[in-house]
Simulated assay, not measured.
Amino acid sequence: MGIILATSRSFSDGDLDLIARAAEAGHRIVRGPAHHDLLELAPLLARADAWIAGTGPVNVAHLAAAPNLKVLARYGVGTEAVDLEAAEARGIQVTNTPGANADAVADHAIGLMLAALRFIPDGDRRVRQGDWGVRRGRELGAATVGIVGFGRIGQGVAKRLGGFGPRVIAADPFLAEHRIRDLGAAPVELDELFASADVITLHAPGGQRIVDAARLDSIGPGTIIVNTARPDLVDEAAVAKALADGRLSGYAADTLDGDTAASASPLLADDLADRVIVTPHLGAQTTQAVDNMGSMSLDDVLAILAGRYPVHPVTR
């Protein structure tokens, strides 16, 4: 019997019983902490043949603690938290789940756009305090929406925007302009996008800074930024300053720098509460996305443990 360590909080928490599926294949799922603290994980890693990992870091020390590890299945698409070179050096195959949560995150991005444009969370708070005063919002269909990163999620956002009718522009250095046009957006350079868009939604990979002081200086009045991607894309101090001085109208995000340890983020200041919306990584948390990510990661784990090739390899 093989031991499969699962450190994603939501693994097998949807409609599918993935623990039973693993058992049918002769393997046992063992749970571990999502934060990947090495002191807590070391005893579990020592016995693990496979690891289904969430967003926590996976570094050379983690891998050294797992002498029997054959596969690391990233429960999600991003692999920036994984030391891929260390995994390859050990002969550990890394997989991920591309597209598994794309629809869920695209839905959430649209929801955050509407919430920011129409002041929905602030309106709810004020009504509960007896304040029925109206803040006049803006319609999504009257906006220019700029999509930064036009992969599966960015394309899903563009598709959903079609029903609202805004002008849609997109910046993606890895996609040909004709493909961007074919998929429903006008291709532009990143700096042009910031200067032109009323709503900017981030769907680029982590490991880079997209929103900084210089780009915030170029935006037009009333601009809203939505981030359902990665916190390191954004200079949070610069965003807070732009909100405070009125250059930026609103910021809506599903992630903050440090996440659960982000209580000191300048974006959570009380005086910005009417302009900032933050959700706790809800983007991928739908039953369908959880089942997709769980099934794809487990299927690749079972394939590798059985000596077969995975469907979604990141490393060879």
Rank of each mutant, 00 (worst) to 15 (best):
F174D: 06
V211M: 09
D217P: 00
R74V: 14
Q288Y: 02
G163Q: 06
P121C: 09
T144H: 06
L114D: 01
V314F: 09
I3N: 05
F11A: 09
I153C: 04
A213T: 14
D17K: 10
N292C: 06
E177L: 08
W132Y: 15
I169C: 08
A109V: 05
R74Y: 12
I153S: 04
V168K: 06
A100K: 10
A6C: 15
A46M: 02
G54S: 12
V77F: 12
D103I: 06
A46N: 03
A64P: 00
R31G: 05
S249P: 00
P173N: 12
T279H: 09
I224E: 02
A269I: 11
A61M: 04
V58E: 02
R215A: 15
G141A: 09
S196Y: 01
A22W: 02
E88N: 06
V276A: 14
A104Q: 03
R275T: 13
L38K: 14
H108K: 08
V278K: 11
P98V: 13
G111L: 13
S12R: 08
V94A: 13
A240I: 10
V276T: 14
A303Y: 02
G99P: 00
G151Q: 07
I52Y: 07
I224T: 14
R209S: 12
E236S: 13
G141Y: 07
V290F: 05
G250N: 04
M113F: 08
A53K: 07
E236R: 14
V60R: 15
D217Q: 15
Y75D: 04
G283D: 01
I110D: 00
S265Q: 07
Q288T: 11
D17S: 08
G294L: 06
R215F: 14
D299H: 02
T223I: 12
F150G: 08
N227P: 00
V301A: 05
N227F: 11
D271L: 10
T95P: 01
R28P: 00
K70D: 01
G162M: 05
I225E: 02
D122E: 13
A61T: 02
A158G: 04
A197W: 07
G154I: 07
G14I: 07
K241F: 09
P231C: 09
A303E: 01
I277V: 15
D37I: 08
A89G: 09
L45H: 11
A284D: 01
V30L: 12
I4P: 01
D291L: 11
T255V: 15
Q288G: 01
M113G: 06
H312M: 10
P43H: 11
D131T: 12
A116F: 10
D83K: 12
M1L: 04
A214C: 03
L302M: 04
L305E: 00
S218P: 00
D103E: 03
S10V: 12
P205F: 13
L268T: 11
A104D: 00
D122S: 15
L298D: 02
P266V: 13
D271A: 15
I210V: 13
L183H: 08
V94L: 14
R209Y: 02
D13C: 09
R90L: 11
D172Q: 11
T260Y: 11
D83F: 11
G294R: 05
L39V: 15
E177Q: 14
D300L: 08
G141N: 05
R308G: 03
L256F: 13
G163D: 01
G184F: 07
A65Y: 04
G99E: 03
A238Y: 07
T228H: 03
